[in-house]
């Protein structure tokens, strides 16, 4: 079997096992580069595509058979309704997220995904329903979370100050998290001059810097390239494994298999 057909089989197997396209592509690039460097036969180096795909999926997700420990309820929204003028945006919607879970809010444009997230964050008052949050909460908006004339480091220091972190500790922690998202050169560019994708990373770093129990993210991948997107999900899994309760608003369907709870607002409001 040629390298290409082996890789093709691997791609099919990764998809079959429910791995998102972005992750599958990154895995395939790794293998292709390795085989080119080593000039080895794919079977000798990686075994069968099926077994290698299984090993990859297990490594990315943690042991599949092992039930991940899920902790206490961190966020509970019940019977949430919201109307803007004559438009009923949300009608009796509920969402429960436990420590160690990722919840995805999905649905068509304008179905109230961001509104629900803002209600959970306490930024918007619902017409009906309750939101209970157990622990600290952090909210990362789709845009406008940053201060244009401040440096990334200054954002880290500001957010860190609220946590009682020293300037140095806050800066180091911020840069560490930025690097996790593939953003290495934090440098001397003010937030207003960063690219959209990098500004979004700044938003993300700020929202995780406070070590919140509940993390609310509104489409946290705008302007991301493939590598950054993969890094984002790996960071989210890490936070989930650390016991955070995470809510992600998204319209990308291939993320669904990576979430523990899915709330489809198109259906829920229907």
């Amino acid at each position: 079997m040629s390298v290409e057909s082996w890789l093709w089989a691997l791609g099919g197997e990764l998809r079959r096992q429910g791995l998102a396209e972005e992750h599958a592509a990154a895995v395939i690039v790794d293998v292709r580069t390795h085989l080119r460097d080593s000039a080895e036969d794919p079977y000798r180096a990686f075994g069968t595509p099926e077994r290698y795909a299984a090993a990859v999926v297990e490594s990315l997700r943690g042991p599949v058979s092992q039930v991940r420990p899920v902790g206490p309820v961190r966020l509970r929204a019940e019977g949430i309704s919201k109307r803007y003028g004559r438009r009923q945006v949300l009608r009796g919607v509920g969402l429960t997220v436990q420590s160690g879970q990722i919840a995805a809010i999905v649905g068509a444009n304008g179905c109230g995904k961001s509104t629900l997230l803002r209600i959970c964050a306490g930024l918007v008052t619902p017409d009906a329903g309750t939101v209970c949050v157990h622990g600290t909460l952090s909210y990362s908006p789709q845009e406008d979370g940053t201060v244009p004339h401040l440096l990334p480091d200054e954002h880290f220091v500001l957010v860190g100050a609220g946590q009682g972190l020293s300037r140095d500790r806050a800066r180091a922690a911020g840069r560490d998290r930025a690097a996790q998202l593939g953003w290495r050169d934090v440098g001397t560019t003010t937030a207003g001059r960063l690219s959209g994708g990098t500004r979004q990373k700044l938003n993300l770093v700020m929202s995780t810097l406070t070590e919140p129990d509940v993390l609310l993210l509104d489409e946290p991948y705008q302007g991301f390239d493939r590598g950054a997107y993969v890094n984002l999900w790996q960071e989210l899994w890490r936070l989930r494994d650390a016991g955070k309760a995470i809510v992600v608003v998204t319209h990308l369907l291939n993320e669904l298999d990576q979430a523990d709870v899915v709330l489809d607002l198109t259906e829920a409001n229907g």
């Binding site: 895995v27 293998v31 390795h34 080593s38 000798r44 180096a45 077994r51 990859v56 297990e58 490594s59």
Partner: peptide, 11 residues
Amino acid sequence: RGGTLYPVLLR
């Protein structure tokens, strides 16, 4: 083997 190494790196 690559099949051993890369899963470790992913983990």
